[in-house]
Each structure stands twice: as structure tokens, then as C-alpha cells.
Design a protein around this nucleic acid. Structure first.
Lengths: 338, 338
DNA sequence: TTGTATGCGTTATCAA
DNA sequence: TTGATAACGCATACAA
């Protein structure tokens, strides 16, 4: 079984006694071909084990049928869910996901180079940091992009986002209502755009209520970093009564650290809020008050927008926004200073 | 800006005053080309914004540089981590991940059809149910496959797996040592091979210690299903002293359900063990005793084996096994019957 | 409806 | 080292 040459449309055509283009037409939906030849072709194709070669098809149609999804390792840990949803929707559109991860090893430039060569039909970027230069490159290559939870203000590029401003305002308002006056912000990493946005809007909402210069410490979105951030902070500072976390994972870490190493109980001694609305945030032992991102709607919109731009080749950028849903857990209570 | 025709190697060749094959050689590493022409070509290529077209290259080289990763929606929830690790390792090998999800909407046959047309270099399947027929198809198409946590006994197909038998033996031995005599197994879904394997080995290990016919209920690997399984069971049955869960997520659900709705404390009233060693299992509020799958080693091995088979075209199947690591949390204690 | 002929953008072979 | 030329497997304009 040396070189079992793969069977091509020519082979099928020859065997079935028709032309190669007839075979091609049979396998392209919606093209005119008589019942008789269609059946004849399908039968011999099946017998010979013929499957159209998508690579050759890509070359001639100038369209790969592949969507690149770029997920940043700096990004929030709720992205596995998002990726899964995206993949499902893209598959429904009969396209495929080509996966890229953006990390220290492989920077954006490397990934972009691959994108051009792979001729992907479009790109969905999860919270990756795109500067203007990158966006221009996409325009030059005529590849539509949809940014997920990331916007580039003065450039025409589509995006779907959760309204972090409104979400944080809701969370802060809730804390204010419970008479909190001593805050701490535990932000996601400084090189994450989403993290910076959430931190900024938290500060802004606090400032609107007269609380300026709220202390900020930084984690990296993980559970452990939430714990560490709290323990380091409490070593040198007075205990705050409310902590605003950059995501749910860190909020959960904060709850555990407070409980285990500082004998603080949430929410009696400490109110904690998160962001994202991941599953674990609803678990009985945590019940974090948080903002749930509408991942279902957001992923659906991302794919819809992208497909529209691919098909209609127009250049107008569309931005869609969702205000997250406030989930009131059991992690916020009346302020209780020490 | 109607049709900005994409720039090809011919365009570059023309502009640089060399032949098209010269351009091609410059972009293929390790081919003989003089310094002078190389620089000339690279310069004009850069100026014109030329990038080699990977699709055309795939067509002629008969190799797409893409690895299909199939993830089953029936599979365990720890797979997001695994997917991320796999993607990283595949990227390091300068290949790309084409993502497929196996669910009710899109069965294995659909996915396989796509695989053939996309000419992927190889396939990694995460805990998907492959029957002999599917395996034969891969052999016919000469596409190497590595199964992840799934084996097909009498067929030559490579796989990497966690040794569920040994893992469950360790867990059961631990419970036996703590004098447990009343067990319940909360298994993953019945159409998951991994779940069935874990259930089987749990039963076997129990039987070796004289405990036959241990009751089994089924969840779907989620937190909620763990809670539900416990509450339904306790409505009609005597409380067991030890519960063996098909994965950590369900174990966490069991802990919460016991605590919240039955006033049972873990591990005082109830010992609970899980499987996988996901991050959340180590969280302070749970600290599940479990078996950690060595995902780092397993993903690395999966990719190594696959690449080897792609490059060397040999047909010998390789199987690698790891015994998971027992993580002793705080969810197991001396048996305490009611 | 069907077949012929051409092109998609590379890599590979061979002669120069 | 370089350049002409033939694949790779399909889609499509055009003629029949």
C-alpha cells in the first residue's frame, strides 16, 4: 500500500463516463445538473471514496471557509466558554475555526503573518490588544475583523462588547447603597485592555459618589492572584469594607483568602463583587455578586456581524453593546468597618 | 478600491526582475539562493506586501499544516484547559488547530466528512467515541489519529490516557482505609466512554474489597447534575458515607448540595472524591480529594506522537499511559454512618 | 444540460 | 544558482 493516490474529480469523471466539470457541479449545491448524471456521479463517487478537496476549492474560490479565532492568554478565564460558543455558531454557518493563541511566545505580528498566508475569511479576536497599526493591516488585506470585548475608538472596526461602564456602575451603586466607604479594587493585569477598562470605570463610578483615589492592586485574573492580592494588601493597610474585583475568579480567591487566613467572613466583614458571571460564581459556597456577560448573545452577534461583512463585502463597522445582568449573590452586605 | 488584486509571487518576480521560482525559493527555508537575489526579492516583497499563499502551498505539497482537534460536548469539562495546552504545543510545531466539536447537531460522520475534504495532517480526538468503523476510515485516508483518554482495544490506533483504573483504585483504597462501607457512585453520562470507564473501575475496586452492587446514579459532568444526583438519591435511600464522583465538578456540586439542603458536612458526615484535579477542586471551600490528570505530559505526548506519525508515515500505534496523582484534599474522613 | 479550456498561486523537476 | 514548465484538484466562462 505504497502510494494510494487520492481520488480526484477526474478519476470519478473518467469512471462515470462524464466530464470533470460535471462531477464538480454535482458537488456544488444549487447547480444545474440532470438527475441522471447526478445519480451516476454520486454512485461512482461513493464507490471510489471520492471527497472533494477543500484546499483546491479554496484556491480557486479565493475563500478558505475558515475563521481565525484569536484568544489572548492575557484574557479572562471565562473565554473557554466563549470559544466553545463561537465554534458552535461558526460551524452552524458551515465554516471552521482556525485557532490562534496570543501569548509571549507568539506575538500578534507572528499571528497576523499566519493569518494572511492562510487566507482566512474573517477574524474574531477575544480581548486581544489591537493597535491601529494592526487594524490597518486588516484593512489592507481586506479581512473583516470583529473584536470581542475590545474596541478601537477612532477606527472603523466592528466589535461586540459588554458594557463595562454600566456594569461597574451597577455594582458600585449597590455597594454605595450598603453604605460602604472603604474600597479596594483588585484589577486584572495591566496589559489587558478589558482589565484596564473595568478598573477605570470602577474608579469613575466611585468618584461620582465622592470616593477618589481608591487603592488599586493588580492580579492576573486567576484565583491564586486574587488571594495573593488580598493578603499582600492587608499586611500593610487597613481593611476595606468592600472589594471590587476584575473578574469572578479573583473574587472567589478573595473570599477564600479572607476566610482562611484573616478570619474574615463574607459578606459580614467584607463585601466582594466580581465580574463575568461564570458558573463557579453561583456555586453555593461563594454566591458572588457579579455582572453576567451575555455570552450567548455576544457570540451570536460576533459571528453574525462577521458573516455579514464577509458576504456583503461592505466596509461599515458595526458595534453592539450589551449591558450585563446584575446577579445579586450573597457576597454584599451592609458596611462593617473594623 | 474595487478589486485590489492580491500580490503573488509572479508580481514580485516581475518587479524584482527575477523568475517566479526564485521568489518561491526565497520563501522556502533551506533552499539554495544567492545572497544578492534573496535580498532583492525580500526587499521588493516587503515593499509590495507579498505573503506566500498557504492554500496554494497546501495544494502542491499535499499537506495542509493543520491538525484537527475534535472535542466532544459529552466530554468532561476540564477540556478547555486541555484544548489550550494542545493548541500551544501544536503552534510550537508550526502547525495550526482546526477545531471541531462533536455534539448532537453535528455527529461524528459529519465531522469526518469535513476532515477528509480539509486534508488535515492529523487528528487529536478528545474522549470522543470512535468505533471501529471510524478508525478504519482514518486508515483508508492515511490520516494519523491520536485518541485522548480513549482507547480502541483491538485496533492499531495511538492514544494517550490517564490510568483510570489505578486512579480509582487509589481513591477507593483511601476510602476503604477510612472504614467506609456504604458507597454511592455518581457517574458521568452513560454515552461517555471515559465516564463508563471510571464507573467500571470504581465498581471493580469496590468489589475487590468485598463491596458489590454499589448503587450508581448518573449525572452529566456538571456541577448542577452533581447536586441533582445527590438530592434525588437521598430522597429514597439511606445516606451513604462515601460518594465517588465521575469528575470534580460533580463532586463540588455534591459537597454544596449536602451542605445546603441536607445539613450534611463534608467530610464529617460524608466523604466525597472526584477525578481530574481541576483548579476549582483545590479551592479552599472545597478541597476535594481527587486524582489529577497530568495534562501537561498528556498533551505534549499526544502532539509528539502525532507529529512523529505524520513525518515518518509509519503505521505503528503507540499508547502512553499515566497514572494520575492522588491529591488528598479535605473531603475524606473516617466513615460516619447515620 | 454538458463538455472544453483556462486559471487559482504555489512547489518541484529538470535543463541550462 | 537560476529559469522554464509541469503539476496540484477544483471551479467557471464559454461554446456546444
Amino acid at each position: 500500500m505504497e502510494k494510494k493516490k487520492r481520488v480526484t474529480s477526474y478519476d470519478v469523471a473518467h469512471q462515470a463516463g462524464v466530464s470533470q466539470s460535471a462531477v464538480s457541479r454535482v458537488f456544488r449545491p444549487g447547480l444545474s445538473v440532470s438527475k441522471k448524471t447526478r445519480e451516476k456521479v454520486l454512485a461512482t463517487a461513493k464507490k471510489m471514496g471520492y471527497k472533494p478537496n477543500a484546499i483546491a476549492r479554496m484556491l480557486i474560490t479565493q475563500s478558505s471557509g475558515m475563521i481565525a479565532v484569536i484568544v489572548s492568554s492575557r484574557a479572562n478565564l471565562n473565554y473557554p466558554d466563549v470559544l466553545s460558543l463561537l465554534n458552535k455558531r461558526i460551524a452552524e454557518a458551515n465554516k471552521r475555526v482556525l485557532l490562534f493563541t496570543l501569548d509571549d511566545a507568539e506575538g500578534l505580528e507572528d499571528i497576523l503573518d499566519h493569518l494572511w498566508t492562510y487566507q482566512v475569511d474573517g477574524v474574531i479576536a477575544l480581548a486581544a490588544h489591537f493597535d491601529h497599526n494592526s487594524i490597518s493591516q486588516f484593512e489592507q488585506h481586506h479581512i473583516p475583523v470583529v473584536l470581542y470585548n475590545r474596541q478601537v475608538a477612532d477606527h472603523s472596526v466592528s466589535s461586540v462588547s459588554c458594557n463595562h461602564e454600566m456594569g461597574l456602575k451597577q455594582l458600585v451603586d449597590l455597594l454605595i447603597k450598603h453604605n460602604h466607604k472603604d474600597y479596594l479594587i483588585i484589577s486584572g493585569p495591566q496589559d489587558s485592555d478589558v482589565a484596564n477598562e473595568r478598573r477605570f470605570f470602577a474608579e469613575q463610578a466611585l468618584a461620582e459618589n465622592g470616593f477618589k483615589d481608591t487603592p488599586v492592586v493588580y492580579g492576573d485574573y486567576t484565583y491564586e492572584s486574587g488571594r495573593l492580592a488580598l493578603s499582600k494588601y492587608l499586611k500593610n493597610h487597613k481593611r476595606p469594607t468592600a472589594i471590587i474585583c476584575g473578574n469572578d475568579n479573583m473574587a472567589i480567591g478573595v473570599v477564600d483568602e479572607a476566610k482562611q487566613n484573616f478570619g474574615l467572613s463574607v459578606p459580614k466583614d467584607l463585601s466582594v463583587v466580581g465580574f463575568d458571571g461564570i458558573n463557579a460564581a453561583t456555586w453555593f459556597s461563594y454566591q458572588i455578586t457579579t455582572i453576567r456577560q451575555p455570552a450567548n448573545q455576544m457570540t451570536k452577534a460576533a459571528v453574525d456581524i462577521l458573516l455579514d461583512q464577509i458576504e456583503n463585502k461592505h466596509n461599515v463597522a458595526e458595534t453592539r453593546f450589551w449591558s450585563g445582568e446584575l446577579i445579586e449573590g450573597m457576597s454584599v452586605a451592609e458596611a462593617n468597618p473594623e
